Amino acid sequence: MQQHDDIVREKRRIRGEVRARRRALTPEQRRAAGEALTARLAELVESRGARSVSCYLPLPSEPDTMGFLSWAAGRGIEVLLPTSLEGFRLGWIRPDGTGTVAGAHGITEPRGELLPEGAIGEVDLMLIPASAVDTSGMRLGWGLGYFDRCLDSLERRPPVFAVVHDGDVLDRVPAEAHDSPVTGAVTPTRVLFFG
């Protein structure tokens, strides 16, 4: 039990540091990071020949994916966005362009067609949020487990890339049995591939 408590405390500490570091970014730094991130995400999608991806609508504290979403729409790349379901599960929506709604936990979610369970396993590439990722590919989420449950449930798991800021790539993040590793990470300055 002590080891579990230590892991939970360490995860909480890292999340707090990440939140503080992200809050300290100026509007200019956020804008520049968003533009650079769009370029890195586009490079990844093009290099892998992806025609369908998952992504997310960013919270104010998350790396800004809005430029990438516009880029993908302009190139006819299908983008699926997450929606919160009961039981801390994710559903996936094909946005219809009619706006957004307030979802669970105050997170903005797209309006659109809710796809059948398992549809996310058919995309070419998954781009998911994270608080941090380590150099072995272990992802640290925000503590509710939505993405870990989603990844664990997939029969076919596409390549998964955590989207983070440069300072969120750490030497090590604590992990428990339910935590899911990722294929790589995308930051404003680089695309990383793990293992």
Rank of each mutant, 00 (worst) to 15 (best):
D64S: 14
A102F: 02
T83S: 04
S84P: 02
H105D: 02
F68M: 07
T65N: 03
G87W: 10
L85M: 13
R89M: 05
A73S: 15
L90H: 05
E113P: 10
G97I: 04
L69V: 07
P110S: 02
M66L: 15
S84D: 01
E78D: 08
P63G: 08
D96C: 03
T65E: 02
T108M: 13
L115V: 04
L81A: 04
D64N: 15
F68N: 08
L114G: 02
I77S: 00
T100C: 12
L115E: 03
A72H: 13
D96V: 03
A102I: 11
A73F: 08
T108L: 13
S70G: 15
T83N: 02
A102M: 11
P95K: 00
G112I: 09
V101G: 00
M66I: 06
M66Y: 12
A72N: 10
G74S: 13
A72Y: 12
H105L: 14
E109R: 04
L69A: 12
E113Y: 05
A104G: 00
T98I: 04
V101K: 15
L69E: 05
P110D: 01
V79Y: 02
A73Y: 04
T98V: 01
L114A: 12
F88L: 10
D96W: 04
T100N: 11
P82I: 14
L90S: 07
G97E: 05
G99I: 01
F68C: 07
R89N: 08
